[in-house]
Every structure is written in C-alpha cells, then in structure tokens.
Simulated assay, not measured.
Amino acid sequence: MLDLWNVLLSGSAITAAAGAVAELTLDPQLKYWVLLPISAVMILTGILRQQDSTLIAPGVKGQPRVKLTEAQYMMKAQILLGNGSNINDESFNQRKEYLAKTLASGKYVARPKTENGKEAANPFNDPGTADAMMSMAKGNMASFIPQTIIMWWVNHFFAGFVLMKLPFPLTLRFKEMLQSGVMTADLDVRWVSAISWYFISVLGLNPVFNLLTSENTDNQLSMMQTQTPQGSEMMSQPAQVESQMKSLANDITIAQHECCFDNVETRVLNMYK
C-alpha cells in the first residue's frame, strides 16, 4: 500500500513538472553580441538603401512646351470660374470671350507627333515609360539584395538564439512569428528569437528611417512627380483633353458673373449701422 502511494506521488510530480512553463535565464552578453549587432546592421542597411534609391532615381524631366501650354490654359479657365468675382464685369467678359473661343477650338491641345506627322498610335513607345520601369526594377533590386544577405547572416550566425522576453502577454498564434528557428513547444510565447527579431525589424523600422533621413519624403515626392506626368500622358489622350477643354468652354460661356465690388460702399455702411 505504501509503495502504491509513492508511485502516485511520483506520477503527480512528473505531471506537474511537465505542465510547468519553461523559464529561461538569458546571458546579459546576448544584448551586446546578438541584439545590438542585428539592430545596428538593420538600421545602417536601411539608411544606405535609401541613399542608394536617391542615387539611382531618375532625374525630373521637363515637360514639352505644348503640354505646359495645354495645362495652363485649362488652369486659366478653372481659375476664372473660381475667382471671377474678384474682377469687374469688363475684365471678366474679355477673359470669358477669349478663353471660351480658344478652348472650344482645341488650338492648344497637345498632340503627339511621329516622324510622318501623324499621331502616335501606341503611348507605350514613349522612352520615359521604359526609364520609369527600369528605375522601378533598380529600386526592387536595391531592396531585395541587402535583405537577402542580412537574412543569410542572421540565420547562419544567430540561429537558435533567444534574445528577449516581451513584457506583455500574447496568444499562441504569435508563437510562430516570434520564435522562428526555436523549435520548443513548451516555451512561453513572449520569448523572441534572433530570426524573428530580424523580421520584426524589417517591418517596424520605417518610422526610424524617416526620423534619421529627412530626405525620404522629398525622394518619394520627387519620384511621384517623375512618374505622374508619364502616367498622365498615357491616360489622357488628346481626344479626352479636347473634350475637357470644350466642357470648360461651355462652363465659361454659361457662367454668370457677379463682382464682389458691386455696391461695396452700401454693404459696408450697412454693416456698421
């Protein structure tokens, strides 16, 4: 009877030990020899990648004169419709007559020409499109190659390292994401491996790069300015632009003018009565 009781006690002790969560004690040197090197390499690589993207980005190309003239005449019509009340009737009527006649005639529509003097049939023949595609390919390569090298470096030298424990609880669904490379079923979810720290750094260091390199926003704006005219040239065909001009000419023709300076003295006196 006593032997049976001892067996039951030993079995319960084994079950309690098996159900307990494994607790680790990390070497403090891991922060200096694993965590900080990975973080420093990721930050420096991100800064160098942004500088490389600045160097390989294509320069801002000037627009043809006919395209600028086309855009400016359409802008003049929109400004006249929006701010026409700031000028007197004579000035408004002069601008109205001139812009309505000019836009309706389609005189300043930018029509792309080929060597034979005919309109270009395929907008993708524009060399600017090829330059934009080449620039995009260079940017993808400049981002893909360093990440591949760093991932190989982390996986080769720091595979199996556990670096830190997160101070907040998580569900088991985060185990695969935070403990990549550590095949331990009973390890707490809050422990983070070296490879998982690399992936977290890849996804979460963009705000740090934006703080360290203030030129990031300017580079994105310059790339958008470089690519937007090319896309607009392909999407806005001369027939579409001509129809937009005729629509603006119709709006100007039927626009009713009311000057803000009419009876201004009476209105001011009524305000201070």
Results as ranks from 00 to 15, higher is better:
residue 101 K to R: 05
residue 34 V to P: 15
residue 38 I to P: 01
residue 15 T to D: 06
residue 64 P to L: 00
residue 77 A to G: 06
residue 77 A to D: 03
residue 66 V to T: 01
residue 105 S to L: 07
residue 16 A to R: 11
residue 21 V to L: 14
residue 20 A to G: 07
residue 57 A to M: 13
residue 42 M to Y: 12
residue 47 I to S: 01
residue 28 P to R: 08
residue 39 S to K: 04
residue 106 G to R: 07
residue 58 P to T: 03
residue 80 L to Q: 06
residue 57 A to H: 12
residue 45 T to W: 15
residue 75 M to W: 07
residue 20 A to W: 07
residue 32 Y to M: 13
residue 36 L to H: 13
residue 59 G to S: 08
residue 19 G to L: 12
residue 36 L to S: 10
residue 33 W to L: 15
residue 56 I to S: 07
residue 100 A to Q: 01
residue 68 L to S: 00
residue 84 G to W: 09
residue 85 S to Q: 15
residue 57 A to L: 10
residue 76 K to T: 03
residue 101 K to I: 05
residue 12 S to L: 14
residue 106 G to Q: 05
residue 96 K to F: 04
residue 17 A to Q: 15
residue 33 W to Y: 15
residue 57 A to I: 14
residue 36 L to C: 08
residue 34 V to Y: 13
residue 70 E to K: 03
residue 105 S to R: 05
residue 101 K to Q: 07
residue 46 G to Q: 06
residue 15 T to A: 10
residue 106 G to K: 04
residue 106 G to E: 07
residue 42 M to Q: 09
residue 14 I to S: 06
residue 43 I to Q: 06
residue 29 Q to V: 14
residue 17 A to M: 14
residue 76 K to S: 10
residue 73 Y to T: 01
residue 71 A to H: 02
residue 38 I to R: 02
residue 70 E to S: 00
residue 83 N to L: 15
residue 52 D to W: 08
residue 87 I to D: 06
residue 99 L to M: 05
residue 74 M to H: 01
residue 87 I to L: 06
residue 70 E to Y: 03
residue 68 L to P: 00
residue 34 V to A: 15
residue 21 V to C: 11
residue 93 N to D: 07
residue 94 Q to K: 03
residue 92 F to K: 01
residue 95 R to L: 09
residue 47 I to Y: 07
residue 30 L to C: 11
residue 30 L to M: 10
residue 37 P to K: 07
residue 45 T to E: 15
residue 105 S to C: 02
residue 20 A to I: 08
residue 60 V to G: 11
residue 42 M to W: 10
residue 69 T to P: 01
residue 28 P to T: 06
residue 13 A to Q: 10
residue 48 L to C: 02
residue 67 K to Q: 00
residue 83 N to M: 15
residue 40 A to Y: 05
residue 97 E to Q: 03
residue 105 S to E: 11
residue 26 L to R: 11
residue 103 L to G: 00
residue 93 N to P: 00
residue 42 M to T: 15
residue 15 T to K: 05
residue 29 Q to W: 13
residue 35 L to E: 14
residue 45 T to C: 09
residue 36 L to K: 10
residue 43 I to Y: 08
residue 73 Y to C: 01
residue 14 I to A: 12
residue 97 E to L: 06
residue 85 S to F: 12
residue 66 V to L: 00
residue 84 G to V: 13
residue 95 R to V: 01
residue 14 I to C: 05
residue 25 T to L: 14
residue 45 T to N: 10
residue 45 T to D: 08
residue 35 L to H: 12
residue 69 T to R: 12
residue 37 P to Q: 15
residue 33 W to M: 14
residue 92 F to C: 02
residue 85 S to G: 14
residue 106 G to T: 04
residue 73 Y to G: 00
residue 19 G to W: 02
residue 67 K to F: 01
residue 96 K to S: 08
residue 104 A to R: 03
residue 14 I to R: 06
residue 51 Q to R: 06
residue 28 P to K: 09
residue 39 S to T: 12
residue 56 I to E: 12
residue 21 V to Y: 09
residue 76 K to I: 04
residue 69 T to E: 11
residue 31 K to L: 09
residue 31 K to P: 05
residue 57 A to S: 08
residue 81 L to A: 04
residue 79 I to F: 13
residue 53 S to R: 09
residue 39 S to W: 08
residue 35 L to I: 14
